[in-house]
């Protein structure tokens, strides 16, 4: 009797494990995802700037300089789950992404899956990039291929048990990765462009939206401000109720870094302004239109 029960128990554990394994398996993009899109490097530079890639992937302490960024990696991001270290994503074939196919690179950016099939940690904002268009991704990849190679090895993340079990990130993705737009409904074209810049490429919600205990974004409190993962200070809310700035003030802030009171951006927002100051003026206006249209 007890033996039969044990057998059933074992069978259930095996079946449960198999279901878990299947549920946490990487969910790749379709093989023909990029087929209809040929990449344009010049257009890709705008995508790269709007997506803020250089802010995290240039070397620590590297000041913004004119010219193509060197994506050597090495910046450290301290969080409650451990310290994540941005990898080298330059075109170096050994230490960067030079040896990856376009499809592999886009699976990394939009699905958070490495060429070897491992899940990336969501410190890399692939859950936001998942909302980007295939054409923008093709352009982005074409641009990244033009950037200089740099042979700095990527360093492993400093993450302890249990967060070091990458397979478990499959479960995290199932629970929290959500490709749907946060703001829905009938939007005018400018607000819709702003939504694309804020919710997809700009990944603003990654810092400005609070997270639950497992690090999933609390979409019900979208952009209402959050704890600073570095531990000090607080990331401000940017909804109309939290911020209260006019659309022209927001657009001007994204260009010059000056608040309506003529204080300036600080902390990580300085790197964001380096990017937004290089966007076309219509894009800054679109971000402002979206933010001021938030509930």
């Amino acid at each position: 009797m007890w033996l039969a029960r044990l057998k059933w128990g074992a069978a259930l554990v095996v079946a449960g494990g198999a279901v878990g394994w299947w549920l946490t398996a990487p969910d790749l993009l379709p093989d023909d995802y990029l087929t209809a899109h040929s990449g344009d490097a010049a257009a890709g530079e705008s995508v790269f700037i709007a997506a803020g890639c250089a802010s995290c992937h240039t070397a620590p302490g590297a000041e913004y300089v004119e010219g193509p960024p060197v994506l050597a990696g090495g910046q450290r991001f301290e969080t409650a789950f451990g310290t994540f270290i941005a990898p080298n994503i330059s075109t170096d074939p050994d230490h960067g992404i030079g040896g990856w196919s376009d499809q592999q690179l886009v699976n990394a950016i939009q699905r958070g899956i490495s060429p070897g099939g491992a899940h990336y940690y969501p410190a890399f904002p692939y859950t936001a990039y998942a909302r980007a268009t295939a054409q923008d991704m093709a352009d982005l990849v074409a641009y990244m291929r033009t950037l200089p190679a740099e042979a700095t090895p990527s360093r492993p993340h400093e993450v302890g048990f249990p967060f070091n079990i990458r397979r478990s990130l499959g479960g995290w993705k199932m629970l929290f990765a959500d490709e749907d737009w946060v703001v829905t409904g009938d939007l005018d074209p400018r607000v819709e462009r702003g939504r694309y810049l804020v919710e997809a490429l700009g990944h603003c919600g990654e810092c400005h939206t609070p997270r639950n205990a497992l690090g999933g974004l609390d979409r019900g409190n979208w952009l209402t401000g959050a704890e600073n993962p570095d531990g000090e200070g607080r990331i401000p809310g940017i909804t109309p109720a939290e911020l209260g700035w006019s659309a022209p003030d927001i657009a001007a802030y994204l260009e010059s870094g000056f608040t309506p009171d003529f204080d300036t951006a600080g902390g990580s927002m300085v790197a964001v302004i380096e990017n937004t100051s290089r966007l076309p003026e219509e894009d800054r206006a679109a971000i402002a239109a979206y933010l001021t249209a938030l509930p």
Binding site: E63, E232, R234, T264, V270, E274
Partner: peptide
């Protein structure tokens, strides 16, 4: 000239001022 001035203020506030609004 506003952007250059804002950038110079922000360069210090990025690393040396507590972010808290």
């Amino acid at each position: 000239a506003m952007g250059g001035l804002g950038g110079a203020c922000g360069a210090c506030h990025e690393d040396y001022r507590l972010s808290d609004d």
